[in-house]
């Protein structure tokens, strides 16, 4: 292992990490927003939209992110929709993640006992108040482990961004190996940087999960 090489490459990996994080987090937030809207549409059985959501979830859960990205980046320009690579990355991640988040939140909502909604309604709350104050907070608690798994999964999926020429971590590693053939150093750095990105997320999620579940289930 050549430490000098590692020192030289560090700034490149650092820049790649920032890019990956930026695109990744926009993607995750988009995924959460889409997931929430979709889960609510299913929950409130909104006609037409409900069918659209089901088709969307089916489409994005059953095709690889790579194919989705290629479609957005290479096929859409053919019909006149031209988007920057970074935007495509976040959009692709958000759409894929939205499908997963929607399923996670939906099952969280279904885990809340029916009697909870009934007792909220018998206190005079309408469906939306019952959702907001009673059902949703409990559903989030149930969904936290799933949401967390999705976030980590999405951040790891950023590794396919290299295929649409985004200089993310994976791209940087492949590029450097191609040019200087320092395979061991490059891949070791790659592993370390993914850990730098994801370990804090796992840890944060663990803390969050414990705090959220505290009220309901105790220590």
């Amino acid at each position: 292992m050549d430490m000098e090489i590692i020192r030289q490459y560090l700034p490149l990996y650092r820049d790649a990490l920032f890019l990956t994080l930026r695109i990744g987090w926009y993607g995750v937030f988009l995924a959460l927003a889409i997931g929430l809207v979709c889960a609510m549409i299913i929950r409130f059985r909104i006609p037409v939209l409900r069918t659209i959501v089901k088709a969307y979830v089916g489409l994005f859960r059953n095709t690889p992110l790579l194919v989705q990205l290629f479609f957005i980046y290479f096929a859409l320009p053919k019909i006149g929709i031209r988007l920057s690579a970074e935007f495509c990355g976040s959009l692709g991640l958000g759409l894929l993640g939205g499908a997963y988040m929607s399923e996670t939140l939906r099952s969280g909502l279904e885990s809340v006992a029916k009697i909870q909604e009934e007792s909220a309604e018998s206190l005079g709350m309408n469906r939306y108040q019952a959702f907001r104050f009673v059902i949703f907070p409990q559903a989030v608690t149930y969904s936290v482990p799933g949401i967390l798994a999705n976030v980590i999964f999405l951040l790891k999926e950023t590794s396919v961004f290299s295929t649409i020429s985004l200089m993310d971590l994976m791209f940087t590693a492949k590029d450097l190996i191609g040019m200087y053939a320092k395979t061991l150093e490059c891949l070791t750095l790659l592993v370390i940087f993914y850990l730098i990105m994801l370990l804090p997320v796992s840890l944060l999620g663990y803390v969050l999960e414990r705090r959220l579940r505290h009220a309901e289930f105790g220590d």
Binding site: I115, Q116, S119, E121, L123, G124, N126, Q129, V134, P137
Partner: peptide
């Protein structure tokens, strides 16, 4: 929901909101 505000109901199974304290359950 306006009519239901005039009707108080208590169920067989404990139906308190588990994510809220006793006081929050009552004041919500």
């Amino acid at each position: 929901s306006l009519v239901r505000q005039k009707i108080g109901m208590v169920f067989q199974s404990y139906d308190l909101f588990p994510h809220k304290t006793v006081m929050e359950n009552i004041t919500l």
